[in-house]
């Protein structure tokens, strides 16, 4: 459970730090008129806070799978499987996708609709290409006789990659909404937030994939 505990430890430390800042030197029983400033509220867009909380939940989920992996790996029947080289290509594609969305984000803050569209297309196409690449990697493994039931290492490989892909699909839904809005030619301000959220989510899934890939390679 160590990976999960490390993650939760960091998260709880943040919560505690935030709470200390909110509560130290505050005398709750003293009445006062509300000041113009809103203590800690509303400085960030609500939807961004929502995404942040969701990412914490997703991180918890992945950390738990990694913990389970680490515990199950110690048992004697574990036979590591050879990762297909294709995974390196896929990783590259996912990286390009992230770059694309970062590009779109930058273009959005500079009010360049063209750049936004280009970046969005790159991000989405790369995500889809990545998933297809993963499917091909599955088929290669299957053809080589590494079935899901033949070893826990294989089972974890299929499980982790599909879990990651499912999260990408969720992202593609949001991406689709954003890109239709961009194509409908709406005001750039109405696309900006969506682009930003997609970019953050793509980066998150890239980091998760790098960690999972590292784990698969090193064991």
């Amino acid at each position: 459970m160590t990976p999960t505990l490390i993650f939760l430890g960091l998260l709880m430390a943040t919560v505690v730090w935030w709470l200390v800042r909110q509560s130290v030197n505050v005398k709750p029983w003293v009445a006062s008129a509300p000041s113009g400033a809103h203590q800690g509220v509303g400085q960030l867009a609500t939807i961004k806070v929502g995404l942040g909380v969701f990412l914490a939940v997703a991180t918890s989920l992945f950390a738990l799978f990694v913990s389970a992996y680490a515990i199950r790996m110690e048992l004697s029947d574990w036979r590591p499987l050879p990762e297909p080289n294709l995974l390196w290509v896929n990783t590259g594609i996912l990286f390009v996708g992230s770059v694309g969305l970062q590009w779109a984000w930058r273009a959005a803050s500079r009010e360049q609709l063209r750049g936004v569209k280009q970046g969005l297309v790159v991000g989405g196409v790369c995500a889809i290409a990545f998933v297809i690449g993963q499917l091909i990697a599955w088929r290669q493994l299957n053809a080589a006789g590494y079935f899901i039931t033949s070893n826990p290492a294989n089972a974890f490989f299929y499980l982790l990659t599909s879990l990651h892909a499912v999260h990408l699909f969720g992202g593609l839904v949001a991406w689709f909404k954003t890109i239709t809005r961009a194509w409908a030619g709406s005001e750039i301000s109405s696309v900006r937030l969506g682009v930003e959220l997609c970019a953050v989510y793509w980066h998150f899934l890239l980091v998760v994939w790098l960690i999972l890939f590292g784990l698969l390679l090193s064991t």
Partner: peptide
């Protein structure tokens, strides 16, 4: 709610892996 958001994934992980054990015959 914070606890539930962070802890329910552990149940989800065990449910998924047990389903795979039951349906596909993996040995998690």
């Amino acid at each position: 709610t914070v606890l539930a958001l962070l802890a329910f994934p552990a149940l989800l992980v065990s449910a998924i892996m047990m389903l795979l054990d039951r349906l596909l015959g993996t040995s998690f």
